[in-house]
Amino acid sequence: MPDAAIAHSPLFTNLSPDECRIVSEMMTASCYESGEAIITEGKETSSLYLLSHGTCRVRKHMGNGADQDLDTLEAGAVFGEISFFCPGPHSATVVAETRATILSLSREQFHELQRERPTAALKITLHATATLARRLRRMDEWTCALVEKGTAPEKHTEWHEFRAQLYSNWNF
C-alpha cells in the first residue's frame, strides 16, 4: 500500500484496497527539487502524474511573453491528464514549488491495467474525467469574465465610483 498521502488522493478514493495496491505498484516514483519542471508546456509525455508530496505550480506562457501562474497543486493532485488521454504537447508547465515526489503511470501501464483490472481502470478514467470537467467549468468562468471585461459598457470604474459617491451620500 502506498503512503497515506496517496491513499487519500481522490484518484484512489473509489479503488478497493487490492486495486489500490496494484495501481500503486505500477506507478514509478520520482523526486523533484524546488523549481524543477515535471512536465513542460509544448513537450509531450505519455504519463498520468500524481503529486505525492510537496506543492507544484501550473504555469502557462502567455501571448505577451509573460508566464502566468494558473493554479497551485497540493499533495494528492493529479495532472498531465490532457496529454495522457489525448496524446499531444502539454498545455502548461508544472514546476515543483517545494521539493516534490511524483508518481507517474505510463500509458502502456494504463493499457495493461485496462486489460487486467478493467474496473480499476474505469474508476481512474472516471476520476480523471471529473478533474477535466472541473477544469473546463473553471475555464468557462474565466472566459466569461474575460468577455465581460472586454465588452463591458463602462471600463472607467473609478469614474463611476466617483459619480456614485457624489450622487448618493454627498448630494445635498
Binding site: F162, R163, L166, Y167, N171, F172
Partner: peptide, 17 residues
C-alpha cells in the same frame, strides 16, 4: 467643503473629462 466639492464634482461628472 463637502457642499462645494460635491457640486464641483457633480459638474465634472456631468460634463465629462
Amino acid at each position: 467643503y463637502l457642499l462645494g466639492i460635491g457640486r464641483v464634482g457633480r459638474a465634472t461628472v456631468l460634463g465629462g473629462i
